[in-house]
Simulated scan of single mutants.
Amino acid sequence: MKRRAVSGMLAVVAILLLPFAIDATAAADPYVPAAGVETTYSGPGPWAVTEEQGFGCCDSTGAAYDIWYPANLGAGGFRHPIVTWGDGTNAHPGQYTYLLNHLASWGFVVIATENAQTGSGVDIAGAVDYLLQRAEDPASPFHGTLNPDAVGAMGHSQGATGVLNALRLSGGRIKTAVPLELPIQIWCATGSWCPDTRRLVDGSVFLVNGSEDSIIAPSEQALPTQVVGLQSIRAYYEAIPSRIPKVWGTLVGPNHNDVQGQPDCAQASWPCTTGVYGYLGYPTAWLAARLMNRADARQAFVPGSGEFFQANPNWVNQIGDSTD
């Protein structure tokens, strides 16, 4: 096991859902978040962060877990929410270290299986069980510092399908899911991990995709879902039962792998256009609203009047019904 304070960049070694990789060297323009909640949660949180690669073993495939967590766990009696992460196809948690470190700086304990085939959701959900089992040990730094009733799941690409499947299969343990660049069903038609958002029974969902991700996670589809299934983010969103709080937004500019930015595209798998910037603010705020009950974050997602739904040059397709 390797433990270190997060301070550097990690090289990217895999590509998601595509058979080849190229150097991605385009520099990103600075991202200017909306004044208010997006600005607040786009910046680093108040917690120093520790990262442990190979924190523990093993998931159902024998893969290890990596973890990002506040260095001063439980300070002031705080009980930390848990976020379980799902990798994209053939990816590794280290490719998302900028984002996962950012979440931990806001007080979340983030655990990620190194499994690069997470679509079933089994190992995304299993990571939570593993962490809570470790926390039962009085000698563990996590003992008495976690909130087992505040668990979220976030994932990218195949991992985005995995977090939806984990949400559905968790029996209510996972409270919210944030799928980033959720692949349309044609990409998982030969696997067992196609998500069907019509089958969700509880929890909440915040769908995020990039406007340039038109092949893997497009916003719109040409034919009705009755003919071709869920082949767009809008179709996934609309299929979520109305009783489940849900929000969708599309970032203007990003492509499929921008979320791997460290923070820009220089070390991300292709295709990457602008980097991770836009994935920091509102996704973090959503988790803070759902798992920490932070009033400012919750207010941002009030349908119609919330900050997220106002005109913003960085976002389109901001729709939702998140009242609960």
Rank of each mutant, 00 (worst) to 15 (best):
T39P: 10
W68N: 13
G159I: 05
G304D: 00
H256G: 08
I216T: 01
L180I: 15
L146D: 11
D196T: 01
K175W: 09
V110I: 08
G281F: 10
T176F: 02
S60E: 14
G304M: 07
P138Q: 11
F108E: 04
A112E: 07
V276A: 14
P241N: 07
T145L: 03
S219W: 06
C194H: 00
A91D: 13
V302P: 04
F206A: 02
N255R: 15
G86M: 01
Y279L: 07
P81V: 10
I124T: 09
R134S: 10
V163I: 03
E181S: 15
T250Y: 00
V32N: 12
L200E: 04
N209R: 05
K175Y: 06
F309W: 07
T97R: 04
S192T: 12
T273S: 15
P195M: 04
A63G: 11
L280K: 13
N257V: 07
K175F: 05
E38V: 14
A160P: 07
S204N: 00
R198H: 08
A135P: 06
Q158W: 06
G119D: 11
S322G: 09
H102K: 07
L207T: 00
G304F: 04
V83G: 08
P263G: 12
Q299W: 04
T274C: 09
G94E: 03
H143R: 09
F108Y: 08
L287W: 05
T284S: 14
S322Y: 04
I233P: 01
I82H: 05
G162H: 11
S170H: 00
E114I: 12
L132S: 05
A63Q: 13
G45C: 12
V208Y: 00
D258I: 04
S232L: 04
L164A: 09
E51C: 05
W270K: 10
T25R: 11
H102W: 08
A21P: 11
R298E: 13
E136L: 11
R298A: 08
M9G: 09
F142W: 06
I186K: 04
L131Y: 07
A177V: 03
T25E: 13
A266H: 11
A160D: 11
V302L: 10
L169T: 14
S105Q: 09
Y282I: 11
G94R: 03
V227P: 00
H80P: 08
P303Y: 00
L207E: 00
D264R: 06
L73E: 06
G172T: 07
P245Y: 07
P148Q: 09
V12D: 13
Q226Y: 00
H80T: 03
V276Q: 12
A239N: 02
S219A: 12
L164R: 06
I82K: 04
